[in-house]
Computed example of a mutant assay.
Amino acid sequence: MGKTSSMYKTADVIIFNTAHWWTHEKTSKGEDFYQEGDYVHRKLSADEAYHKALTTWGRWLDEHIDSSRTTVFFRGYSWSHFRGGQWNSGGSCDGETLPIVDDKHLAKYPNLLNILELVMSEMKTPVLYLNITRMTDYRKEAHPSMYRFPETKRRVVKSQDCSHWCLPGVPDTWNELMYAMLLKRLRR
Rank of each mutant, 00 (worst) to 15 (best):
T136H: 05
T136R: 00
T136W: 01
D137Y: 13
D137T: 11
Y138W: 11
Y138G: 01
R139A: 09
R139L: 10
R139V: 05
R139N: 06
K140S: 01
K140P: 05
K140M: 06
K140Y: 04
E141W: 09
E141S: 15
E141P: 06
A142L: 12
H143W: 04
H143V: 07
P144C: 00
P144M: 02
P144F: 03
S145Q: 02
S145E: 03
S145W: 00
S145F: 03
M146I: 03
M146K: 05
M146N: 08
Y147Q: 15
Y147I: 07
Y147W: 13
Y147K: 05
R148I: 15
R148L: 13
R148N: 14
P150L: 09
P150R: 03
P150N: 04
E151V: 15
E151R: 11
E151M: 09
T152Q: 14
T152G: 09
T152Y: 15
T152W: 14
K153F: 15
K153C: 13
K153Q: 15
R154C: 02
R154T: 01
R154L: 00
R154Q: 11
R155Q: 11
R155L: 10
V156G: 09
V156D: 14
V156P: 15
V157Y: 08
V157F: 10
V157G: 03
V157I: 06
K158E: 05
S159C: 05
S159M: 11
Q160Y: 08
Q160M: 12
D161E: 09
D161G: 05
D161A: 10
D161R: 01
C162L: 07
C162I: 03
S163F: 08
S163Y: 11
S163L: 08
S163Q: 08
S163I: 11
S163T: 08
H164D: 04
H164W: 10
H164C: 07
W165L: 01
C166E: 10
C166M: 12
L167V: 00
L167D: 02
P168S: 08
P168Y: 00
P168C: 03
P168A: 06
P168V: 03
P168T: 02
G169F: 08
G169L: 05
G169Y: 01
G169H: 02
G169S: 02
V170A: 03
V170Q: 00
V170N: 02
V170Y: 05
V170P: 05
P171S: 01
P171T: 01
D172C: 07
D172Q: 15
T173S: 07
W174A: 01
W174S: 03
N175L: 07
E176D: 13
E176M: 14
E176N: 07
E176G: 12
E176V: 06
L177N: 04
L177Y: 06
L177M: 15
M178V: 12
M178Q: 06
M178R: 11
M178C: 09
M178L: 10
M178W: 04
Y179F: 02
Y179G: 02
Y179M: 07
Y179Q: 06
Y179P: 01
Y179D: 10
A180H: 11
A180Q: 13
M181D: 00
M181I: 13
M181C: 05
M181F: 14
L182W: 08
L183Y: 02
L183C: 04
K184Y: 15
K184R: 10
K184C: 08
R185G: 04
R185P: 04
R185N: 10
R185F: 07
L186D: 14
L186I: 11
R187N: 10
R187D: 12
R187L: 04
